[in-house]
Structures are given as C-alpha cells and as structure tokens.
Computed example of a mutant assay.
Amino acid sequence: MADSVGVALLVVLDTLGPAERLAFVLHDLFAVPFEEIAALLERSPQAGRQLASRARRRVRGAAPAPHADLTPRREIVEAFLSATRGQDFRALITLLHPEVTLRADRAVMLSAGPVTVAGAEHVARGAMAAMGRARFTGPALLDGAVGLVMAPRARLRVALTFTIVDDLITAIDVIAEPDRLVRLELAVLG
C-alpha cells in the first residue's frame, strides 16, 4: 500500500482526526456522497463537507512559494534516497558537498545529545548504514521544502531535511524527537 499511495500520504493521513480521515477517504477516494458519510459520523452533511475540506487542505499542505521550483531539489533528494537504497557509495558522494554536515537529534541515535557528522565520506557511510530503514522512506514536503520521511507502518518516525546549494547537499538534519516531528508541516509531493 505504501508503494502505491506513497509514504508521505500515509503519514499525512495519520495526522488527521478520525472523522476528518473518514470523510476525506470515503468522499475523495471512493466518491461516497456526503449524506451517507454524515449518517456514519452522526453529523450533518454540511459538517461532513467541512471535515473533508479541512482534511483535503491538510493533505495538500502549505503551498511552496510560487517562485520556488522544487523539481531540481526533488531530483537531488530522490537521487540521495536511491543511492542509499542501492548502496551506491560513489553516487551518494557526488550528491554531497565535500564539507557537508549531518546533524541528528538525540532521539535518532538514542544519545545524550545531538550528533554531528562532517565530511562527504563520513555522511555517506552513515547513510549506507541506514539502508535498511530506507525502504520505509519516501519524499515529502517538509515545511515547504523537499525532504524525506521514514514511516514504517505509516507512522512518522524520522524526517530528513536538506540544505542544497549549487546542486550539492550541504547539510542534512535528521529529526526523530516526537515534539519536533509534530511541529513539521507535512505535505505530499505532487
């Protein structure tokens, strides 16, 4: 299911309340009339419409800045994921700035504090070590920028945000602390 619908969509759906999720899925995916949805939810058809509308806005997420072309950044982030999944160290190195920095919060490594790794080789080796988790990872919009979300069983566990300058990844932030994850604005990439 994650492959056909997308990891990010499953994660976003998981952030909806039960009534919003039901109204959205039944109406937008299965074309169930609002009158039937309202009966299931014991609400008015107008309330069902409002629930579906609110869910639809959350699934679409905040629109990126109109001038921002996400395509080049998306290609770089997807190439990073592909190289990690394929254990292609050389391809991964070509995506990273020589002085790239990876910062992982304490929940990622279960450490007393955040962990910082610097340099393309060190960051690439760390990404290779996380290959097993990469199969539960997919691209998403995180606060309006292209990033990656790791969501085994459709539960958001880790988010990666990227800083990209001149088509090279210069910084990666790995977020796993629950209080930081809930503050991220998540949206499915179109």
Rank of each mutant, 00 (worst) to 15 (best):
A2E: 06
A2F: 10
A2I: 08
D3Y: 12
S4M: 12
S4C: 06
V7L: 09
A8N: 08
V11I: 02
V12P: 14
D14L: 12
L16E: 04
L16N: 03
L16G: 01
G17N: 13
R21S: 08
R21T: 03
A23H: 00
F24S: 01
L26E: 06
H27F: 13
F30L: 11
F30D: 06
A31S: 09
V32G: 10
I37W: 02
E42L: 06
E42Q: 13
Q46C: 07
Q50N: 13
L51M: 14
S53E: 11
R54N: 04
R54M: 05
R56G: 03
R60H: 07
G61S: 10
A62V: 03
P64E: 05
A65Y: 14
R73Q: 08
R73H: 12
R74Q: 08
E75R: 15
E75C: 02
E75Y: 08
S82T: 09
S82G: 08
T84E: 11
R85W: 02
G86Y: 04
D88N: 13
I93D: 04
I93C: 07
L96Q: 12
P98D: 10
P98K: 04
T101Y: 06
L102H: 10
A104I: 05
A107W: 05
V108D: 04
A120I: 08
A120R: 14
E121N: 12
H122Q: 12
R125H: 11
G126K: 08
G126V: 07
M128E: 06
A129L: 14
A129V: 11
A130E: 11
A130P: 04
R133W: 12
A134S: 14
R135T: 09
R135H: 09
P139A: 15
L142M: 02
L142N: 03
V146P: 01
A151W: 00
A151N: 02
A151G: 13
R153P: 03
A154K: 13
R157N: 09
V158G: 07
F162P: 01
F162D: 01
I164H: 13
I164K: 15
V165S: 15
L168A: 11
I169L: 05
I169H: 11
I169T: 10
T170N: 04
I172F: 00
I172S: 00
P178W: 12
R183W: 07
E185L: 10
L186Y: 15
V188K: 09
V188F: 07
L189G: 06
L189P: 04
L189K: 04
L189W: 00
